[in-house]
Amino acid sequence: GFPHNFQETTYLKPTFCDNCAGFLWGVIKQGYRCKDCGMNCHKQCKDLVVFECKK
């Protein structure tokens, strides 16, 4: 597997964290999205993600 390539992201529609399944709250920059596989997560979850990037 590969490490994720997370970038701070502004979501335009309701989005949930792929790590904890919690809602990504806020208006802008609600969470992080992996540029390579599209995984979404909270800032506090991005260092805890157990799934490797599937590129």
Rank of each mutant, 00 (worst) to 15 (best):
9 T>L: 08
8 E>F: 10
30 Q>D: 03
3 P>F: 15
8 E>Y: 10
3 P>I: 15
28 I>Y: 07
37 C>W: 02
16 F>R: 07
25 W>I: 12
26 G>D: 03
52 E>I: 11
51 F>W: 10
10 T>E: 00
24 L>T: 06
11 Y>N: 07
14 P>V: 04
50 V>I: 03
8 E>K: 14
16 F>L: 03
11 Y>S: 14
4 H>A: 01
25 W>E: 12
22 G>F: 04
42 H>W: 05
36 D>W: 12
25 W>R: 07
12 L>A: 10
44 Q>F: 14
19 N>M: 15
13 K>N: 05
48 L>V: 12
7 Q>F: 10
33 R>W: 13
53 C>A: 03
26 G>A: 07
51 F>G: 14
39 M>H: 09
49 V>D: 13
7 Q>R: 09
43 K>C: 11
8 E>V: 14
3 P>E: 15
42 H>K: 01
11 Y>P: 01
37 C>E: 00
17 C>K: 00
33 R>D: 06
43 K>A: 12
24 L>F: 13
50 V>Y: 06
21 A>T: 14
31 G>T: 00
52 E>N: 08
22 G>K: 06
47 D>N: 05
45 C>H: 03
48 L>I: 04
38 G>T: 06
33 R>S: 12
36 D>M: 10
54 K>Y: 06
21 A>N: 14
34 C>W: 01
22 G>I: 08
34 C>N: 01
4 H>N: 02
41 C>P: 01
53 C>E: 07
38 G>L: 11
28 I>Q: 03
48 L>C: 14
3 P>N: 15
52 E>F: 15
22 G>A: 10
12 L>I: 02
4 H>E: 02
41 C>W: 07
12 L>Q: 05
34 C>E: 01
41 C>Y: 13
13 K>D: 02
24 L>Q: 04
20 C>F: 00
9 T>D: 09
48 L>H: 07
45 C>S: 03
40 N>W: 02
14 P>N: 00
2 F>M: 11
18 D>W: 15
51 F>K: 08
50 V>C: 14
54 K>D: 07
22 G>S: 11
31 G>R: 01
38 G>P: 10
28 I>A: 06
35 K>Q: 15
6 F>I: 06
53 C>L: 13
9 T>I: 07
13 K>W: 09
52 E>D: 15
2 F>P: 02
14 P>K: 02
2 F>S: 08
22 G>N: 05
44 Q>N: 06
10 T>K: 03
5 N>Q: 11
36 D>N: 13
16 F>N: 08
4 H>S: 00
33 R>M: 14
23 F>E: 05
19 N>Q: 05
11 Y>Q: 03
29 K>F: 07
44 Q>K: 14
25 W>H: 07
50 V>T: 10
28 I>W: 09
24 L>V: 06
19 N>A: 14
55 K>T: 06
10 T>S: 10
1 G>S: 15
6 F>P: 03
51 F>I: 10
54 K>Q: 09
47 D>I: 07
42 H>G: 06
34 C>G: 00
53 C>H: 13
23 F>K: 05
7 Q>H: 10
39 M>V: 09
43 K>D: 13
28 I>V: 11
1 G>L: 12
23 F>Y: 11
40 N>P: 08
2 F>Y: 12
25 W>M: 06
6 F>R: 02
7 Q>G: 09
53 C>D: 11
49 V>M: 03
14 P>H: 02
10 T>G: 07
16 F>E: 04
13 K>A: 07
49 V>H: 15
26 G>Q: 03
11 Y>E: 06
10 T>I: 02
47 D>C: 15
15 T>I: 08
52 E>Q: 08
39 M>L: 09
17 C>T: 01
12 L>H: 07
35 K>R: 13
44 Q>L: 11
25 W>N: 04
6 F>Q: 05
26 G>F: 02
34 C>D: 06
48 L>T: 12
27 V>C: 07
44 Q>Y: 15
